[in-house]
C-alpha cells in the first residue's frame, strides 16, 4: 500500500488542502480522512449526514467501497467531499 497526495475541498469550506491517502483506502475512508482537516477545525460537524467523494468537475459520487488504487488517480488529483443529501454545489 502506498500513499497518494490528493488536493481536497470539503463542502462549505473555503480552502484546498493537501491530504495524503492510502491507496488501499475506500472512498468512505478517504472522506473521513479529509473531514479530519475541516470538520471541527473550521466547519461544524453534521454527524447525521453521509459524506461522499467525487472528482472536482464530476457530477456523480464515486462508489463508497471503491478503493483509491482502483480509481485511476494521479498525485494531486482534486476531489470534493460533499454531503449526500445536500443541495448541489453552488458553481460546480
Amino acid at each position: 500500500m502506498q500513499t497518494l497526495p490528493l488536493v481536497c475541498s470539503f463542502e462549505d469550506g473555503c480552502i484546498l488542502t493537501l491530504v495524503p491517502v492510502d491507496t488501499g483506502a475506500t472512498m468512505d475512508e478517504v472522506a473521513r480522512n479529509v473531514a479530519e482537516h475541516f470538520v471541527g477545525r473550521m466547519l461544524p460537524p453534521q454527524p447525521s449526514k453521509v459524506m461522499r467523494v467525487r472528482l472536482q468537475g464530476g457530477s456523480a459520487f464515486l462508489p463508497r467501497q471503491l478503493r483509491v488504487e482502483e480509481a485511476g488517480w494521479q498525485p494531486l488529483t482534486t476531489i470534493e467531499i460533499a454531503y449526500e443529501n445536500a443541495a448541489p454545489a453552488a458553481n460546480a
Binding site: 469550506g13 473555503c14 480552502i15 484546498l16 488542502t17 473550521m42 443541495a87
Partner: peptide, 29 residues
C-alpha cells in the same frame, strides 16, 4: 492544521474561495 494547504505554483499562496457555498473554491492545474 494537521496537514498543509495546497499552494499555487505561480503565486505561491493557498487557494481560497467563499465558505458556505458548497465547493466555491476550485483548483486549476
Amino acid at each position: 492544521p494537521a496537514t498543509v494547504p495546497m499552494l499555487c505554483n505561480i503565486c505561491g499562496l493557498s487557494i481560497g474561495g467563499i465558505p458556505g457555498q458548497g465547493h466555491h473554491v476550485k483548483g486549476h492545474w
